[in-house]
């Protein structure tokens, strides 16, 4: 099965020449993941290695399971009644479904940005500080510093620094989405999951989000679901193609887009279906 490709083969060609030949380290190791919504199976035997400090794109037609897969990585699917996951998801070697795993701590390490920007109806400052406050941080200076740092990381600081007490919902769509990224970054995660973060944005805002992802990948492991083939090709090092709940093919983005091993992958990335 293509999903079982040894890690050494996953090193993208263009990275090969630049860095050493050592295999990239794995941040999240998924083995035999099966996922069910009640009687419906949404993911079938998925094996997947998310590489540390790189961008991994998940592509596939609607309903193929890519968003479900993304949401199993921080157990957001726990919220869905009747949903259940089987198999192993290891984050830095620890099974995230283990009995002594604190799911709130997991979600602080594995942050998430949603398709539709969803800032709270609060001020910009309070949006970014939300995760810190619920983590029990009261120190005003710590919070102020984290707010500024996160907004800078999300390339939003210069646009909002004079208006931190303005309402988040008054920002533009693109700004709101970057605010959501800042909010996710404020709790200092290692991994950032992004579910089509630019699909509702105009091309300029999309460009800014893509630049931002480019900047962030040296510090964060990023997994992004996207419907946009060009976007996947532009921003990711690795790409996984899902179809009908199965991981059809997974490898370096360049290989997936130029010499895919599977016919279905080729048909999809060339736009013949989907």
């Amino acid at each position: 099965m293509p999903g079982n490709t040894p890690m050494t083969e996953l090193v993208p060609k263009h990275l090969d020449s630049a860095s050493s030949t050592a295999p990239p380290s794995v941040k999240i190791r998924v083995r035999r993941l099966n996922f069910y919504y009640g009687p419906t199976q949404a993911l079938k035997n998925v094996d997947f290695d998310v590489v540390t400090n790189a961008v991994t794109a998940l592509i596939g037609p609607s309903g193929c399971g890519k968003t479900t897969f993304l949401r199993t990585l921080n157990r957001m699917n726990d919220q869905v009644p009747g949903a259940r996951a089987e198999g192993q998801v290891h984050l830095d070697g620890t099974d995230i479904h283990g009995p002594d795993v604190d799911v709130t701590a997991l979600r602080r390490r594995v942050g998430m940005v949603f398709q539709k920007s969803n800032p709270f109806p609060k001020t910009i400052r309070e949006n970014v500080a939300f995760g810190l406050r619920i983590a029990g941080i009261r120190d005003v200076f710590v919070i102020e510093e984290a707010v500024e740092e996160s907004l800078r990381l999300a390339a939003l600081w210069d646009e909002v620094k004079d208006n931190l007490d303005g309402l988040a919902l008054q920002l533009s769509g693109g700004q709101q989405q970057r605010l959501c990224i800042a909010r996710a970054l404020a709790v200092k995660p290692d991994v950032l999951l992004m579910d089509e973060p630019a699909s509702a944005l105009d091309p300029i805002s999309t460009g800014k989000i893509e630049e931002l992802i480019e900047d962030l990948k040296s510090r964060y492991t990023i997994v992004i679901v996207t419907h946009n083939m060009q976007q996947a090709a532009r921003i990711s090092e690795y790409t996984g193609f899902f179809y009908m709940g199965e991981l059809i093919e997974y490898g370096p983005t360049l290989k997936i887009f130029t010499t895919p091993a599977e016919k279905r992958t080729e048909d999809y990335v060339t736009g013949r279906f989907g």
């Binding site: 709130t104 701590a105 979600r107 942050g111 949603f114 939300f130 909010r183």
Partner: peptide, 9 residues
């Protein structure tokens, strides 16, 4: 969802 994703109980 945003709240849960930020680690809120």
């Amino acid at each position: 969802e945003a709240s849960y994703a930020l680690g809120a109980t």
